[in-house]
Structure formats: C-alpha cells, structure tokens
C-alpha cells in the first residue's frame, strides 16, 4: 500500500518535472536509494564442539528484503539471507546445509572487485545462482587463524539481482556489533555475527545501472 502511495507521488513528481517527454506510456523511474544497515544479527548454532571437533551448523538464516530495506521472516519475500559468515541468495538450488530456507525467487549475484562508487552498472553475464557447488557470495571476508577475527576483504562489492529482477549493490563493512574500529578479543568472542553494510538499491525493474 505504502509502495503504491510512493509510486503515485513519484509519478506525479516526475510527470511535473519532465517536460521533454509527453508520452504517457513511459515507465515510472524511481530514484536509486543509498542506504545502510547496522547490526543485522545472523546467529548460528553448531560449528564446533568444546573439543574443537566440527559439528553441522544449524539455525535459521536472517533474511533481508531490499525493497523494504528491512529484515523479514517471510518465506518468499526475501533477497539475501545471513547465518554466521554464510550469505545465501533467494535463487538457485540448495548447497545442502541444514536449515537453508527454500529458494522461491530468481535472485542471482556476483562479486566485483571495486569500490561502491565505481560499480555503476551490472554485468548481467556474470550473474550466478547458489548451487550444490556453493554459495555465490561466499568469498567476502578474510579469516585470521591466529585471533579468529573475520574482516571483510576490502574492495569486494556484492552485486545482486533481487528475487523480482531488480538490482542492488552491497558492501559489507563489519561482522561485529556497532562496527567497532578495533576488534578486541572480547568483541570477537561476544559481539560477532552482527553485520553492518551499505547498499544501493535500483528499484526499477530491469534497470542495470546505479546512476
């Protein structure tokens, strides 16, 4: 309902402001939105037991919807989802991990080595979906085996086609609560799995640019 209101408002706005084009059938152009999300919590269970033996990772993924810009518990209206360091998209087939939600959409993604500002267009050729081989968005961080700290690799931009054929780009800034400048042992132990990320959403279906 809210979306329709917004659309109407925007239509009126664009209708008034665009003088060069009188064709009424022109699609509605929505503005590209730059947003940020803080402390998206993506807990997991399992991993390792007390002795350090590997256990299956379980627990529900935290789902995120670009069109509303919020987390969601909807089984269908989500684009990407987080659990620990794993990020899945709502498109493709399961990798086989426990508690993976069913993929109902047609999302796809790839990672580009660039900066947020420099990713201006989506290269649709590169888009891939999750599969039995693995997750498309798996390689976004560095793991330090000494202090076990996860840091986002600099210059990894996640380019995403949402479930409904729109595009977004994401840069993950932190894996720890409140995006701390220094990750102490205490923070690493107690405040992990809180994502902070910036994203830019192209709300117009099929438009592959972010300008």
């Amino acid at each position: 309902m809210k979306t329709i209101k917004l659309l109407t408002l925007l239509t009126i706005f664009i209708g008034f402001s665009s003088c060069s084009n009188d064709d009424d059938d022109d699609p509605v152009i929505l503005r590209v939105e730059s947003e940020s999300v803080s402390n998206l919590y993506a807990p997991q269970e399992g991993g390792f037991d007390q002795m350090g033996n590997p256990l299956p990772i379980t627990g529900e993924f935290t789902k995120f919807d670009f069109s509303s810009g919020t987390t969601t518990t909807s089984t269908t209206d989500w684009d990407i989802a987080f659990r620990g360091t794993n990020i899945i998209i709502n498109g493709g087939t399961s990798f086989g991990a426990t508690d993976e939600p069913e993929r109902t959409g047609n999302a796809a993604a790839y990672m580009e080595n660039s900066t947020m500002a420099n990713v201006l267009e989506v290269d649709v050729q590169l888009l891939q979906q999750d599969s039995a081989t693995g997750y498309v968005l798996s390689n976004w961080y560095d793991y330090n085996p000494v202090n076990h700290i996860i840091t986002p690799t600099a210059g990894k931009i996640l380019v995403i086609r949402t479930r409904d054929g729109k595009y977004a780009k994401v840069e993950i800034l932190s894996y720890y609560k409140d995006n701390p400048a220094e990750i102490t042992t205490e923070i690493a132990t107690n405040d992990a799995r809180y994502y902070t990320f910036n994203y830019v959403n192209q709300p117009n279906e099929g438009v592959t640019t972010f300008e």
Binding site: N113, A154, L173
Partner: peptide, 14 residues
C-alpha cells in the same frame, strides 16, 4: 586497480 583498502568502517577505496 585490483587492490583496495577499507578505511575504518567507511567502506573501501581503490
């Protein structure tokens, strides 16, 4: 231009 750095939580620069 394949190397990037994160500037303290503000994102990456080339």
């Amino acid at each position: 231009g394949e190397a990037f750095a994160s500037i303290s939580g503000q994102g990456s620069i080339e």
